[in-house]
Design a protein around this nucleic acid. Structure first.
Ligand SMILES: [Mn+2]
Ligand SMILES: [Mn+2]
Ligand SMILES: [Mn+2]
Ligand SMILES: [Mn+2]
Lengths: 250, 250
DNA sequence: ACAAAATGTTAGGCACGCCTTATTTTTTTA
DNA sequence: TAAAAAAATAAGGCGTGCCTAACATTTTGT
């Protein structure tokens, strides 16, 4: 009921846990939550009452637990913060997944909206800018280990130049294709949403808008579903949804 | 007495506040702390008792407050985390100082040692690598606002090339100079510590070791003291200390 | 169908960390 | 130097979030 309840760090973690459990098995039980968060069952009962009072979960004693629309929205917000931070640590700082995940789950509760957006954009920028990219991140790794990058980086620069030349002579730019035709790992800029009605609405809601950069993270055997990353969100799109998105390969 | 007391987020903030107050006026009073942290005086009394019990401050009722050696060490550690995070937000993510400072003071309590070091190295790498630098950060700003960097970045690349050529033809590399001869804003790699005895020890303790990158942040009129940044630490060096450090300009 | 096992809730307690109000001590000022 | 002002502390209270132990309900296996 409450419009924008302020959630404690603890309640955000409960919400996040419930979200993940529900993603796997429709409804959560207190035991699942206590196992995941490593707290006593009685602590879960208390948290559930709090969340129910705030209108974020459907809960009755001894009953299964589901998220209300408001709860789902709040949970998705926490998850997005968590994943964006984790991605930054893994993709930019080259930290191991487990360590990045743990750190993300602590920082997610205290990072400001604005700085989070910057971080997401930065991670995207590093991947997209011809001066950035995986070779550059590798250069960062080298810098971490040896502290000296001058010669190494000069070599990098020539590599970038070659890349750029290849791109200029090779492909004509502005080849608009359909999202469903992208392969795993490819990145593209959203040009147009051709989907209409509910699908259109859902896509826009999820952050898929013209200009956004979209990356294909995983592709199921028949292209359904396709897992993508947009603006820090990790999304799973049905093929029918992917078909409604025109993109330009980057 | 306790070797490595685990401090709550709250106690870390108290310690940090005491450190900053002492830096300005020798000893802190409860009132200074309550003003800075915006808490009631009685809350400060409680915190001071905790810190004294942990052997981090010298404190007796109604008396002035100073840091013990252990307390100073713990406080410096908090301050370093705070400043490193703030620097990253300001210098890499181009966030405003005030916002960066506030965010840093929340995240400082939950960031892991390892990720902090990565962040510090990353900020340094971005400044040092010829593919990074201020123009690149400006490119990031452009990316944030317009979302499109292709052409802009191609222009950047040619600029880098020019920079590199100029450096190659112009300066002979390996010009070892003394830290005291650096100007504000210049960066250098530490080559050798010529200082001996206590000064040597102090410098090494502060992270000034061969290979470290050192940046001159501010220079007092007669070069004493000189404020520098090394490995995420912001340090104030006396001229006599600066003279004991040989560096190579980057 | 019913006992055993699993799950969930209640009750009571503890540690933090903050507050307000009252009291004590120190410092200032007239 | 004594009254007034400022600073600090003590006492009591509140909310959060965790725990254990005891009790209640539901599910499972025979
Ligand atoms: Mn968390
Ligand atoms: Mn999390
Ligand atoms: Mn803080
Ligand atoms: Mn701080």
């Amino acid at each position: 009921m409450t419009a924008n309840a302020v959630l404690s760090e603890s309640l955000e973690d409960y919400l996040e846990a419930i979200f993940h459990i529900i993603a796997e098995k429709q409804a959560a039980r207190a035991k699942d939550i206590s196992r995941q968060l490593k707290v006593a069952g009685s602590s879960v009962t208390g948290a559930l009452r709090s969340l129910a009072k705030k209108g974020l979960i459907n809960y009755a004693p001894y009953d299964l637990i589901t998220l209300t629309p408001a709860g789902r929205k709040a949970a998705k917000d926490v998850v997005r913060r968590h994943e964006a931070l984790r991605d930054f640590f893994v993709n930019v700082l080259a930290v191991g997944y487990a360590e990045a995940d743990e750190a993300a789950c602590r920082i997610e509760h205290v990072i400001s909206k604005n700085i989070l957006e910057r971080l997401i954009q930065f991670a995207e920028f590093v991947e997209i800018c011809p001066r950035g990219g995986s070779k550059w991140i590798a250069g960062f790794g080298y810098h971490c280990d040896h502290g000296d990058t001058r010669e190494n980086c000069e070599k990098c620069i020539s590599l970038i130049l070659e890349d750029l030349k290849r791109k200029k002579t090779g492909g004509k730019s502005m080849s608009i294709i359909n999202l469903k035709d992208l392969k795993q790992g490819q990145r593209a800029r959203v040009e147009k949403i051709t989907a209409r009605g509910d699908t259109n609405k859902r896509l826009v809601e999820m952050g898929v808008t013209p200009g956004a950069v979209i990356e294909v993270e995983r592709l199921a055997p028949l292209g359904d579903p396709v897992e993508v990353k947009v603006k820090g969100y990790h999304l799973s799109l049905r093929k029918s949804e992917a078909e409604g998105i025109d993109v330009e390969l980057i």
